Amino acid sequence: MNRIATFAATTLLFASGLTAAHAATVPCEDLLQKLRDAEKTATLSAADKAQVSELETKGIERCNADDDKRADKFFEDALKITAKK
């Protein structure tokens, strides 16, 4: 019986850790909206605009695949470019 209780407690702790780790990620849709808002006001060169567009496309692809962590990384990289200008 102790093994079952230990297993249940360990499983519960592991599951709560996954929930906390997943909650730390910003929803990709929120970051995408922030990027699109930043693009409206940024003055970008053609090269920077192409790079931002490529990162946005990759981010949307990952967002649609429910991979918020990687999507957020693409969107954050694009935001860095828009912030420079």
Score class of each variant (00 low, 15 high):
residue 53 S to M: 06
residue 50 A to V: 07
residue 67 D to L: 06
residue 74 F to D: 01
residue 67 D to F: 06
residue 9 A to P: 08
residue 53 S to D: 09
residue 85 K to F: 10
residue 31 L to Q: 08
residue 78 A to S: 07
residue 19 T to L: 15
residue 64 N to A: 08
residue 37 D to N: 14
residue 70 R to Q: 05
residue 2 N to T: 14
residue 10 T to Y: 13
residue 20 A to P: 05
residue 60 I to K: 14
residue 14 F to M: 15
residue 30 D to F: 05
residue 48 D to L: 07
residue 72 D to T: 13
residue 26 V to N: 02
residue 75 F to E: 00
residue 6 T to N: 08
residue 81 I to N: 01
residue 16 S to W: 13
residue 64 N to D: 14
residue 72 D to K: 06
residue 18 L to C: 10
residue 15 A to E: 09
residue 68 D to T: 03
residue 14 F to G: 12
residue 82 T to A: 00
residue 8 A to Q: 12
residue 48 D to A: 07
residue 41 T to H: 12
residue 65 A to G: 01
residue 3 R to Q: 10
residue 71 A to N: 04
residue 41 T to N: 13
residue 75 F to T: 01
residue 48 D to S: 09
residue 55 L to F: 12
residue 79 L to D: 00
residue 73 K to V: 05
residue 84 K to T: 12
residue 54 E to Q: 14
residue 69 K to D: 06
residue 35 L to S: 00
residue 44 L to Y: 10
residue 65 A to R: 05
residue 19 T to W: 15
residue 55 L to T: 06
residue 82 T to V: 10
residue 9 A to N: 15
residue 64 N to T: 11
residue 83 A to N: 04
residue 69 K to M: 10
residue 3 R to C: 03
residue 68 D to Q: 04
residue 33 Q to H: 11
residue 47 A to Y: 08
residue 9 A to E: 15
residue 25 T to C: 02
residue 40 K to F: 05
residue 31 L to E: 02
residue 32 L to A: 08
residue 43 T to R: 13
residue 19 T to S: 14
residue 66 D to V: 09
residue 81 I to D: 01
residue 27 P to E: 03
residue 83 A to Q: 08
residue 74 F to K: 01
residue 24 A to C: 04
residue 84 K to Y: 09
residue 70 R to V: 03
residue 42 A to H: 09
residue 7 F to W: 13
residue 71 A to G: 02
residue 50 A to P: 02
residue 11 T to K: 10
residue 57 T to K: 15
residue 30 D to L: 09
residue 17 G to T: 15
residue 49 K to T: 06
residue 8 A to S: 12
residue 71 A to Y: 00
residue 51 Q to I: 00
residue 77 D to I: 01
residue 53 S to F: 03
residue 58 K to Y: 04
residue 23 A to H: 15
residue 9 A to S: 15
residue 57 T to V: 10
residue 1 M to W: 10
residue 60 I to Q: 14
residue 43 T to V: 04
residue 2 N to H: 11
residue 65 A to S: 08
residue 16 S to R: 13
residue 5 A to H: 13
residue 19 T to D: 08
residue 80 K to Y: 03
residue 78 A to V: 05
residue 79 L to Y: 02
residue 70 R to T: 07
residue 72 D to Y: 09
residue 44 L to G: 05
residue 14 F to H: 14
residue 50 A to S: 13
residue 53 S to K: 14
residue 47 A to V: 12
residue 2 N to E: 11
residue 23 A to I: 11
